[in-house]
Design a protein around this nucleic acid. Structure first.
Length: 924
RNA sequence: GCUCGAAUGGUGGAAUGGUAGACACGAAGGACUUAAAAUCCUUUGGUCAUUGCGACCGUGCGGGUUCAAGUCCCGCUUCGAGCACCA
C-alpha cells in the first residue's frame, strides 16, 4: 500500500462525520476543557491558506487534551452578520441571507477538507433567529439595568426608580451620562417622557444624544474601534463627528473592572497592554474655576495638579455646552465665525491640520490658587468627549498649550527650576517647583510628584476640586443604520421607547424590497412593510452592530439548542469559560473588550459563573502573501529570469503564484494564464526561469492567494497541517511560502515507510532496541512539552528526527510505532488514524487512545560528553561514563593531553562541571 | 510623543546563562537511471588552511556583569505593533 492522501483523508473524514466521533456531551465525570477559535465572517472569497493557521493550532491542542482524558469542547460557527453581504445585496439585489448561506457552505467544505475535530452539532450562526434571540435578550437586560458604582455591579433599574420615588437623585451611586439633580417630588411630577429620558441617563443600554462617528459613504455610524485615523476600517472612507440620538452601551462603567480583570488573564503582555491603552486610565484631579461676573464654574480635569500656579488661560472645546454661556456680546461674532469654520472640517481634516486656531470668548475665569483672572478661549485642540471638554492651560509644561500661547501671545510662567521655555515647553515630570506660592499655600522646592499630591490634598480640603480618575474608554455606539443585523426589540409609543415583551423574542428581521436607506433618509428597515407591533406602534429602525452577535457566542456553544435560556445553569457551571482562545490581534480593542464587558454584565446578573470569558488567549500571526514577479523587457513580450534582469531595462509584473513552483516559473502555465502572454519569450538562466518575490498582503489583486484546497489536493491535509505549524511560531506573522512543503511531505512518506513497504506491513511485536526506545521516548517528552507551550514548529522537527532515526535503525516494533502514532495524531490525524487501524490493527479510533508517558530510564545516556573549556573558551571534548562523579570528571579533564598547553605556566583557580555539558577550567 | 515587542546563515527558523545555527528549504557534489522525475548518500555561517589536522572571526551597534552572554544589565540604531491634540 502506497501512501495515498486522497484515499486516506476522504475515508477518515467520512468515518468521523458518519460516526459523530467528535460529538461532545456534558459529562461531569470527566474534567472539561474548552478550546475556541474566533469564528470567521464567511466572506465571498472563501478561506485562504492564512485562515487555518489558528484553527490548526487549536485543533492540535483539542486533540491533545482529549488524548489526555479531558472532555473537550471545540466548536465552530459563523459571524454571519456583516457589511460585505449587505453591500453585495445593494449591488445585486440578492438577499444577504442567500449569499451568507452560500458562503457558509463553501467555508464548511473547505474546513472539512483540513480534518478539524469540531463538534458541528453545536454550530452557531449569528444571523440565525434561534441565536439572535439571545443577543436581543441580553440587550433588553442591559436596558433594564443600571450600574451601581458602590456595589460595583449592574443592578435592576427598578431599584433606581424606587430610590427616585423616595429621595430623588440624592445619594444615588449610579454610572450616568450626566450628573442630574432632582428631588423625589420633582421625579413624581415628571411626565412619562421626562421619566423615560431621565432613566436613559442611567441605563446600561441607553438612548443618548452623543457625538458619533458618522460615515456618510457607508451611511452608518461606527464604533471607535471601527475607525482609525479618521477613516473607517472597512472601506477607508472619511468619518465625521455628528451629534445623533443613538443606542449606546455604557461600557465605560466597566472600565476599571475591565482593567483589573486583565491581571488574572493568561494573555500576552502586548495584548493586555493594547487593552490598557484603549481603556486609558489616567489619575488626576477635577477642579472648578469660577467665571468672573457669573455663577457658573468651569470644571476641568488635569493629571498635573502641581501646575495650577502656571495656568495662564483656559480653553474649551468648540462643542462644549459652556461656549454659549461664556461668550460675551462683543466676542459673539468672532466666536460664531470660528465655530462655523470648524464645523466644515471632517474629523480627519481636523487631525491632519495641526495649525493653531482658536478664539477668545471675552470671559475670564479666576485661578483658584493665585486669584488671578485668566482669559477663556475656544479651540479645537480640546476634545469635547474627554474629561469635561475644557482644560486649564499650562503653556510652560504642555506642548499644545505652549503652541497656543505662542500663537496668541499669552503669558508663559515656568514652574520648574532651571527649565528653559524660550523655545519649547518642558514636559518632564521631574524637578523642583518654583513660582508656585500663594498667601497660604506653597509648592516651591517640592519635587513634581510631591507637588501633585500636595495640591490634590489642598484642593480637596478647600473644596475647590477632588481627586478623579478618567478613562479614555467610551460608551459603545450600538445602533447601525443597516439592514443586515439584529433588529432591536424596541417600539415607540408617543415617541417614548418601550421594550417588547420577552416572550415575543426573537424579533425577526423583516423583508425589504431594497437594502438602501429610504428616500426620507431612514435606515433600510424603514422600507419594511408592517414594521409595527400588533398594536400598531412603530418598531426601531436601526439594527445592532457586528459585535453584538459575537459578544456572547462562546456561551451559546455550551448549550446551542436551549430555547429557554442563553445557556442553562448546568451547562454554564460545567463548561464555565473558554480555557484556550485562539484568534488574531485585530480584535484586541473591539470584540475582546465587548465580549469581556458583555460577560461581566451577565455575571453581575447571575446568568454566568465566571467573571472573565477567555482565560488563556493566543494570537496567531497573520499569514502574508508572497508575491512572485516576472520581468518583462520594456516594449517587448520577452521575460528575463531574475539573475539576468539587471542587464536589461525591465518592468516587474506580478504573476499568479499558483503558476510558480519554488520560485521557478512554469512557462506553459504562464503562457496559458492570459492571452497577452500566449507568445511570451523567455531568457532563462540554467534552463530555468527564476522569479523575484516580495512580501505583501495576501489578496486577489496581488495574485498571491494560495487556496488551502489546492494544497490539500496536491499534498494532503496532513501535510498542510504539519507545514503550517512548521513555518514558525504561531504568534508570529510570516509570509506564506510554498517552498519547503516538500520537506514535510517527504516526512509523511518516510513515516509511512516505517509501517508499510508495498503491500507488506512491517509492524511486529519484537523487542525494540535501546536506541529505538530512546528515539521515541525523546519524541514523546519533546512533543508533550511543546504542545503545552504551543511550540509546534519544534515538535514537527522532533517528528522528523525521530522518524529518521527509526528508519535508519530499521525499527518496526509495535512498542515503538504505537506511541509514535498517538503523539502524531493531533498533528496529522488522518495518517495517524489510518496507521492506527490498518498497521496497528486497532478497531477504535486513535482519539480514544491514551497519551503515552515517556520513561526517563530509556533516555539515560551511558556515556556523557563534556566540552572542556579554559576560561570559557571550549577547546576539546571528552567522553566518559554517564555516572562518573564530578571530581573524577575534573581529574580526567585536567590530565587530558590537550590540557597541558593551556595549563602551562598557569594555575587552576576554579573548575565548574555542568552535568553532560561542560567542564570549565578557570586558569590565571 | 508615550507604551510594548523584535533583530541569529542564501531563506523559514532552533538554542532552561553552559560546544550558536536543531529541523527544513535552497545550493553544490555523488549514487541509481538510456534520460528525466522520484529516491538515497555527502557537503553547506564566514575567512584562511586543507590529500592530516586545524586556526581565527562570528547572533543589529557600543559598553557592563559572569569562569561562561544570542540569552542578564545600561546606552544606542533599525524594524514592527498599539495608543495619540486624551490635558
Amino acid at each position: 500500500m502506497e501512501y495515498n492522501h486522497k484515499d486516506i483523508e476522504s475515508r477518515w473524514q467520512n468515518y468521523w462525520r458518519d460516526n459523530k466521533v467528535y460529538k461532545t456531551a456534558l459529562d461531569t465525570t470527566r474534567p472539561k476543557f474548552y478550546v475556541l477559535d474566533m469564528f470567521p465572517y464567511p466572506s465571498g472569497a472563501g478561506l485562504h491558506v492564512g485562515h487555518p493557521l489558528g484553527y490548526i493550532a487549536s485543533d492540535i491542542y483539542s486533540r491533545y487534551k482529549r488524548l489526555r482524558g479531558f472532555n473537550v469542547l471545540h466548536p465552530m460557527g459563523y459571524d454571519a452578520y456583516g457589511l460585505p453581504a449587505e453591500q453585495y445585496a445593494i449591488q445585486t439585489g440578492q438577499h444577504p441571507e442567500k449569499t451568507t448561506t452560500d458562503n457558509i457552505a463553501r467555508y464548511r467544505q473547505q474546513l472539512d477538507r483540513i480534518g478539524f475535530c469540531y463538534d458541528w452539532d453545536r454550530e452557531v450562526r449569528t444571523c440565525d433567529p434561534k441565536f439572535y434571540k439571545w443577543t436581543q435578550w441580553a440587550f433588553m437586560k442591559m436596558v433594564e439595568s443600571y450600574y451601581d458604582t458602590e456595589l460595583d455591579k449592574a443592578q435592576p433599574i427598578s431599584k433606581l426608580v424606587e430610590h427616585f420615588e423616595k429621595e430623588g437623585s440624592k445619594g444615588i451611586h449610579a454610572a450616568c451620562s450626566e450628573e442630574l439633580d432632582f428631588t423625589a417630588d420633582e421625579w413624581k411630577a415628571m411626565s412619562e417622557k421626562e421619566k423615560s429620558d431621565t432613566l436613559m441617563n442611567y441605563r446600561i443600554a441607553y438612548l443618548g444624544n452623543t457625538m458619533v462617528n458618522w460615515c456618510p459613504q457607508l451611511g452608518t455610524v461606527l464604533a471607535n474601534d471601527e475607525v482609525s485615523e479618521g477613516l473607517s476600517i472597512r472601506g477607508g472612507y472619511p468619518v465625521e463627528q455628528k451629534l445623533m440620538y443613538q443606542w449606546c452601551l455604557r461600557v465605560s462603567a466597566y472600565a476599571q473592572r475591565l482593567l483589573d480583570g486583565l491581571n488574572d488573564l493568561d494573555w500576552t503582555d502586548s495584548l493586555k497592554e493594547t487593552q490598557r491603552n484603549w481603556i486609558g486610565r489616567s489619575e488626576g484631579a477635577e477642579m472648578r474655576f469660577p467665571i468672573v461676573g457669573s455663577d457658573i464654574e468651569l470644571e476641568i480635569f488635569t493629571t498635573r495638579a502641581d501646575t495650577v500656579f502656571g495656568v495662564t488661560f483656559m480653553v474649551m472645546a468648540p462643542e462644549s455646552e459652556y461656549v454659549d454661556k461664556v461668550t460675551t456680546p462683543e466676542q459673539r461674532k468672532a466666536v460664531d465665525e470660528y465655530l462655523e469654520s470648524i464645523k466644515h472640517k471632517t474629523e480627519r481634516e481636523r487631525m491632519i491640520d495641526k495649525k493653531v486656531s482658536g478664539v477668545f470668548t471675552g470671559s475670564y475665569a479666576v485661578n483658584p490658587l493665585t486669584g488671578k483672572e485668566i482669559p477663556i478661549w475656544i479651540s479645537d485642540y480640546v476634545l469635547a468627549g474627554y474629561g469635561t471638554g475644557a482644560i486649564m492651560a499650562v503653556p510652560a509644561h504642555d506642548s499644545r498649550d505652549y503652541a497656543f500661547a505662542r500663537h496668541f501671545d499669552l503669558p508663559i510662567v515656568p514652574l520648574i527650576e532651571g527649565c528653559d521655555v524660550s523655545e519649547e515647553s518642558f514636559e518632564a515630570k521631574s524637578g523642583k517647583m518654583i513660582n508656585s506660592a500663594s498667601a497660604d499655600f506653597s509648592l516651591n522646592g517640592l519635587e513634581v510628584p510631591e507637588a501633585i499630591a500636595a495640591t490634590k490634598k489642598y484642593i480637596a480640603e478647600k473644596g475647590i476640586g477632588k481627586v478623579k480618575v478618567n478613562y479614555r474608554l467610551r460608551d459603545a455606539i450600538f445602533s447601525r443604520q443597516r439592514y443586515w443585523g439584529e433588529p432591536f426589540p424596541v417600539y415607540y409609543k408617543d415617541g417614548i421607547p418601550h421594550l417588547m415583551d420577552e416572550s415575543s423574542l426573537p424579533l425577526l428581521l423583516p423583508e425589504v424590497d431594497k437594502y438602501l436607506p429610504t428616500e426620507t433618509g431612514e435606515p433600510p428597515l424603514g422600507r419594511a412593510k408592517n414594521w409595527v407591533t400588533p398594536e400598531g406602534y412603530p418598531i426601531e429602525l436601526n439594527t445592532m452592530p457586528g459585535f453584538a452577535g459575537s459578544s456572547a457566542y462562546y456561551l451559546r456553544y455550551m448549550d446551542p439548542d436551549n430555547n429557554e435560556a442563553l445557556v442553562s445553569k448546568e451547562a454554564d457551571e460545567y463548561w464555565r469559560n473558554v480555557d484556550l482562545y485562539i484568534g488574531g490581534t485585530e480584535h484586541a480593542t473591539g470584540h475582546l473588550i465587548y465580549s469581556r464587558f458583555w460577560n461581566k454584565f451577565l455575571y453581575d446578573l447571575g446568568y454566568v459563573v465566571e467573571p472573565e470569558p477567555f482565560k488563556k488567549l493566543i494570537n496567531q500571526g497573520m499569514i502574508q502573501g508572497r508575491t512572485n514577479f516576472v520581468y518583462r523587457i520594456k516594449d517587448t513580450n520577452t521575460f528575463v529570469s531574475l539573475g539576468l534582469k539587471d542587464q536589461y531595462d525591465t518592468t516587474p509584473i506580478r504573476v499568479d503564484v499558483n503558476r510558480v513552483s519554488n520560485d521557478v516559473l512554469d512557462l506553459d502555465a504562464f503562457r496559458a494564464w492570459r492571452p497577452e502572454f500566449k507568445d511570451a519569450e523567455f531568457i532563462l538562466e540554467d534552463g530555468k526561469y527564476v522569479c523575484g518575490w516580495a512580501v505583501e498582503k495576501m489578496s486577489k489583486s496581488m495574485f498571491n492567494v494560495v487556496n488551502p484546497d489546492d494544497i490539500v489536493e496536491r499534498y494532503g491535509a496532513d501535510t498542510l497541517r504539519l507545514y503550517e505549524m512548521f513555518l514558525g511560531p504561531i504568534e508570529q506573522s510570516k509570509p506564506w511560502d510554498t517552498n519547503g512543503i516538500d520537506g514535510v511531505n517527504r516526512f509523511i512518506k518516510k513515516l509511512w515507510g516505517l509501517y508499510y513497504k508495498g503491500d507488506q506491513c512491517f509492524v511486529d511485536d519484537s523487542k525494540p532496541s535501546a536506541e529505538a526506545l530512546k528515539a521515541v521516548h525523546k519524541l514523546i517528552k519533546k512533543v508533550t512539552g511543546d504542545i503545552e507551550t504551543f511550540s509546534y514548529n519544534t515538535s514537527v522537527a522532533a517528528f522528523m528526527i525521530c522518524v529518521n532515526e527509526l528508519s535508519s535503525l530499521k525499527c518496526h516494533s509495535r512498542e515503538v510505532l504505537e506511541p509514535l502514532v498517538i503523539v502524531l495524531a493531533p498533528f496529522a490525524p488522518h495518517v495517524a488514524e489510518e496507521l492506527w487501524h490498518t498497521a496497528l490493527g486497532h478497531d477504535t479510533t486513535v482519539n480514544d487512545a491514551k497519551w503515552p508517558e515517556w520513561n526517563e530510564e530509556y533516555l539515560k545516556e551511558n556515556t556523557a560528553n563534556y566540552a572542556v573549556s579554559f576560561n570559557g573558551k571550549a577547546r576539546f571534548t571528552i567522553q566518559v561514563p554517564a555516572d562518573m562523579p564530578k571530581d573524577e570528571v575534573e581529574k580526567l579533564a585536567l590530565s587530558h593531553e590537550s590540557s597541558a598547553k593551556w595549563l602551562e605556566g598557569k594555575s587552576v583557580k576554579k573548575i565548574i562541571v555542568v552535568p553532560n555539558k561542560i567542564v570549565n577550567i578557570v586558569v590565571g
